[in-house]
């Protein structure tokens, strides 16, 4: 590797965070994601996925440890970087509940992706230029919801809202996308669309993608690499295809069931599969 090698997209060193003393939510996390990778963050609910992603964007300060995005520190030793706004512009953040402003139009929501780049006086007057609007409309077309651009964001379906959120990160010119359970509240069809869109953003635009999922099937299908969290620790980091049922059971025990809920394919008849999640409890 040459001395001028590009820094990794994401470097997390010894990150620890507890909300209550003695009960770490994140416990000595060490992760390196190279630029251009598409990585799944796996874990049952409560394993610390969301908390970790929120730390990367500097929404939460950790207790100890540091996070670097493209070689620049977003936080170190419990202090969020002073230039965090500049760093956030590079980080596209999408979440399960889309976080769009539902009373604003889809176009305006996408234009908020430009807020870091547009001078403050202009954005406060709501004056986005023609070029900026065209750029936003182009990205809306790219994610396939150009028709809806003048509707209120709240009127869109879940899948469409998630696409609008993705369009916002594209307008923002983010280089890394953090997606926190982006498909958890979508129907299978929309979920697949959103995952394919993320894969496409990774493939066509070279964006680095870190996506938290709690369904292992999606991780295996779309992400070559998976990082598994359990009780705030990294318990697996490697090829996602190695995460078979046995591996997951070894890591998560009974909690593995939550990750193995089969992905219902739209082409297949949907048979409700009730997994005995609390089987251990019932027996006790």
């Amino acid at each position: 590797m040459s001395a001028h090698a590009a820094p990794p997209a994401l470097q997390i060193r010894n990150l620890t965070k507890s909300f209550q003393a003695g009960r770490p939510v994140l416990n000595d996390i060490n992760i390196v994601v190279k630029s251009g990778e598409m990585v799944a963050l796996i874990g049952a609910s409560g394993s610390g996925k969301s908390t970790l992603l929120r730390h990367i964007a500097g929404f939460l300060p950790a207790d100890t440890g540091s996070i670097l995005v493209f070689g620049r520190t977003t936080q170190a030793d419990g202090r969020v970087a002073k230039n965090i706004r500049e760093l956030r512009a590079e980080i596209g953040f999408v979440v399960q509940q889309f976080n769009l402003v539902s009373r604003l139009s889809v176009l305006t929501n996408v234009l908020t992706g430009l807020l870091f780049w547009v001078p403050l006086w202009r954005s406060l007057l709501g004056r986005f230029s023609h070029t900026e609007r065209v750029a936003a409309l182009n990205e809306l077309a790219a994610v396939g919801i150009l028709e809806q651009s003048n509707q209120r964001a709240g009127e869109l379906s879940g899948g469409q809202q998630q696409r609008a959120a993705l369009a916002r990160t594209l307008v923002q010119r983010a280089r890394i996308i953090l997606a926190d359970e982006p498909i958890a509240s979508l129907d299978p069809e929309s979920a697949r669309h959103v995952m394919e869109m993320l894969a496409q953003m990774n493939h066509d635009r070279g964006l680095t993608i870190l996506v938290s999922l709690h369904q292992i099937d999606f991780a295996i299908r779309y992400c070559p690499r998976a990082i598994a969290l359990h009780d705030g620790r990294v318990v697996y980091d490697g090829p996602s295809r190695n995460l078979d049922v046995a591996a997951l059971r070894a890591i998560y025990g009974n909690a593995a069931t939550e990750l193995l809920t089969p992905v219902r394919d739209a082409s297949m008849p949907t048979t409700p599969v009730r997994q005995p999640i609390r089987a251990a409890h019932a027996a006790a």
Partner: peptide
């Protein structure tokens, strides 16, 4: 969501 874009607090 807006904060995540790197927006100013007034924005």
């Amino acid at each position: 969501g807006v904060r995540g874009t790197g927006a100013h607090v007034l924005e």
